[in-house]
């Protein structure tokens, strides 16, 4: 028996909106520690890892570890029917091939339940090695989304270079070139507006902008985004999910032939 009750149902709505266009079908893994997912996009260039810890749920009952295969587009369609303030409960009986999403309005005067068929998805989990990052960038998530959107109107790949001056996002295309430089700025009113660069050493990597733009669909989840870079390995773009966990996007770099 599985019964997960999330009072801040809007978090789950936002999570699905941020991954449904990147990944089609995925297995959600439920265990005592929490509700998680790890899946690659169809081209195996990007990987998303989601964790919602059990403590973040108002009620978390997971009698045994189970993995539920879902079509994320269909799941997103059902979650769209939940109000932003609704409590969302996810239920599945042992051995059942369906999952039920229950939406309760805050005043409990409206209760809806949507039942979705589960799928068999064979996907092995990848081992993600802990890495020492050469540069860690923490910046307002809206700012990162704006930069990716603006640059993708000029070119389709971005070179992200971190030096002690700051971080530079560069692109070039048929109509010309664009460079955006963000400097460290910690003298701000609110901490979430700061741009922090922890950079033990300079690094420069090239990525496809369309994936980064896809990752920024997670912007509503967090005011800040953490971008961890190291030479020759995937970048990690992480959005924290309010005291519950995180959604991490890994993107493989483009390497000079």
């Amino acid at each position: 028996m599985l019964e997960l009750r999330l009072v801040q149902g809007s978090l789950l709505k936002k999570v699905l909106e941020s991954i449904k266009d990147l990944v089609n079908d995925a297995n959600f893994d439920c265990s005592a520690t929490g509700f998680s997912l790890q899946a690659m996009d169809s081209s195996h260039v990007a990987l998303v890892a989601l964790l919602l810890r059990s403590e973040g749920f108002e009620h978390y009952r997971c009698d045994r570890n189970i993995s539920m295969g879902m079509n994320l587009g269909n799941m997103a369609k059902m979650l769209k029917c939940a109000g932003n303030d609704d409590i969302i409960t996810l239920k599945a009986d042992d051995g059942s091939d369906t999952v039920t999403f229950m939406f309760e309005s805050p005043t409990q005067d409206k209760i809806a339940d949507f039942e979705m068929r589960l799928m068999d998805i064979d996907s092995e989990h990848l081992g993600i090695p802990e890495a020492e990052y050469h540069a860690i960038l923490i910046m307002p998530s809206a700012e990162f989304a704006r930069i990716c959107k603006d640059l993708s109107s000029i070119g389709d790949t971005v070179v992200i270079s971190v030096t002690k001056e700051g971080v530079k996002f560069s692109t070039r295309g048929d109509i010309g070139t664009a460079n955006v430089v963000c400097r460290q700025n910690t003298t701000v009113d609110k901490p979430e507006e700061a741009t922090v660069i922890e950079m033990p050493e300079p690094v420069s990597l090239t990525f496809a902008l369309r994936y980064l733009n896809s990752f920024t669909k997670a912007t509503p989840l967090s005011n800040t985004v953490t971008i961890s870079l190291s030479s020759e390995i995937p970048v990690v773009v992480e959005y924290k999910i309010a005291e519950m966990g995180y959604i991490r996007f890994y993107l493989a770099p483009k390497i000079e032939e």
Binding site: H44, V45, A46, L47, G127, I233, P234, P253, K254, E256
Partner: peptide
């Protein structure tokens, strides 16, 4: 030009 790598080049199946 630069060649797009896949994530599986870096992360191995468990």
């Amino acid at each position: 030009g630069s060649k797009q790598c896949t994530i599986t080049k870096f992360f191995s199946k468990k």
